[in-house]
Nucleic acid binder design. Structure first.
Length: 200
DNA sequence: GCAGAGATTCTCT
DNA sequence: GAGAATCTCTGCC
């Protein structure tokens, strides 16, 4: 699909990312899900972002690549996946925090070593979908094993504070986390599932 | 060369 | 709700 919606406005792109179908093909196995939760990270001026103040290191180098680049980092032994927006002048990106599983449930369960809670968190979905820093950091969306295509449309979008950055001063209060209202496949909050899981 | 932190997850209380 | 597990990179000594 056309990725040009990621070229200019990161927060608009983050909201547009909800409902897109994310597919990975790793070790010959396909897994996919609808994106249900994302967070925006606004680079230079965002104290919670890895690129705050223009900080540029070996670890966050991929944030300075063009929109459509995949940035995978590890922390506490888990992998987190971001889609980079804009360009080298604006090192911004979208953290993919949760998806609703569609395809490859069995391999997700196998990779996770459990039957539920497969993709309702940033470290969980990368584990379920086989995403690893050493394999996928720096690749381009839709030019390799990680693909997004059109999916579903959220009935409504909920804005909330980002998770895990409580000590980032004013940036802690930014409402840059977006979830599909009524979809239970999201991190942290226990959401009462809507009849259609929040899709229109 | 090493201490410490981090956009997390799991388990137990 | 708190604490441990666990891994890489950064920053400072």
């Amino acid at each position: 699909m056309d990725l040009s919606f990621m070229e200019h406005d990161t927060l608009a792109a983050a909201k547009a990312m909800l409902g897109k179908r994310l597919t990975t093909i790793v070790e010959g196995v396909t897994a996919s899900g609808y994106i249900t939760e994302v967070e925006g990270y606004l680079g230079i001026n965002d104290k919670a972002a890895h690129a705050y103040g223009g900080r540029r290191t070996k670890k966050n180098e991929m944030m300075y690549r063009p929109f459509g680049t995949i940035y995978v980092y590890t922390m506490h032994g888990h992998h987190c996946m971001n889609f980079i927006t804009r360009d080298a002048e604006s090192p911004e990106g979208i953290l993919i925090r949760a998806v609703e599983p569609i395809e490859g449930i069995e391999v997700m369960q196998q990779r996770r070593g459990r039957m539920d809670h497969l993709t309702d968190g940033p470290g969980k979905l990368t584990q379920s979908m086989g995403v690893k820093r050493e394999l996928h950091n720096g690749l381009k969306l839709n030019e390799g094993p990680i693909i997004i295509t059109e999916g579903r449309t959220p009935e409504a979008i909920v804005e909330s504070k980002r998770i895990g950055i409580a000590n980032k001063e004013e940036a802690s209060d930014y409402l840059y986390r977006f979830t599909v209202k009524g979809n239970p496949y999201v991190s942290k909050d226990r959401v009462k599932a809507a009849a259609n899981l929040g899709w229109s």
